[in-house]
Amino acid sequence: MLSISNISKSYGAIKALDDISFEVASGEIFGLIGPDGAGKTSMFRILATLLLPDQGAAKIAGLDVVRDYKALRHRIGYMPGRFSLYQDLSVAENLEFFAAVFGTSIEANYQLIAPIYDQLKPFKDRRAGALSGGMKQKLALCCALIHKPDLLLLDEPGTGVDPVSRKEFWDMLRDLRDGGLTILVSTPYMDEAALCDRVALLQNGRIMAMDTPEKITAAFSRPIFAARSADMYRLIQDLRAMPGVADCYAFGEFAHAVLDDRSLKSSDLLQYLQECGHTEVQVKNAEANIEDCFIELMKKETTHG
């Protein structure tokens, strides 16, 4: 469905995308995972035919994003990172407008958006600007879907949305995928990565790893312990100083300690931390997740130059 080969894009001296290649199969949710500034938005704008790559080529359903951009604009649904609907128009007016612009009507493709739009219906006369973050996102998704695109491009759809709405949103994406739609989505949230079929970890315009989320985490070779105490800041400092600990960083309420020395057990860490004078200490085994992999890969990239 989507094939990207050797795409590069620079803004002056800054390389936003550096020789990116990947492919996305039909009916797949593919995630571009990376922090702000990794190059995600540039990639989306190139695929949405809004930006020209400096080098390389991209094809969507056999159409070139540069040469065939006019034909392509009928085939893709694009939801930019920022909320990009008319805040002074109502929910229904926004949807009608985008349907008309794409030469279709709400009725013609209602089936596709029905599960999402049904939730919006009670608010259909409300101005889009007065909707909650989650509702805005659902409306934007409806507007991007209204012309029945083959490929959906969602640039950071989760930003500014509460966790419950985010989960609902991902359920909708999976339903759409099961209906045959191909979805390319970007997110800075590592927890959303696990919901994709395949992901590419993006950092400084380069792909550090690309696979299914399970395989990426499975490739993480070293044991991880999650630890917490009353003084988290000092705990991280102390663990970093402990022999056999390769790295330690904050991870939600806990700190993740990555070990070089496989012989260390959680009791060893507990004892060490208590000797350092920590109170309310907890240490437990942890599974590596995408964020751990991301941090490890990022460190490797920087040390290798």
């Binding site: 604009r73 930019p80 909320f83 990009s84």
Partner: peptide, 13 residues
């Protein structure tokens, strides 16, 4: 400014 131009441009308009 509002980012709606981005969506208009991607449309067949």
């Amino acid at each position: 400014e509002m980012g709606t131009m981005e969506v208009l441009l991607v449309s067949p308009l």
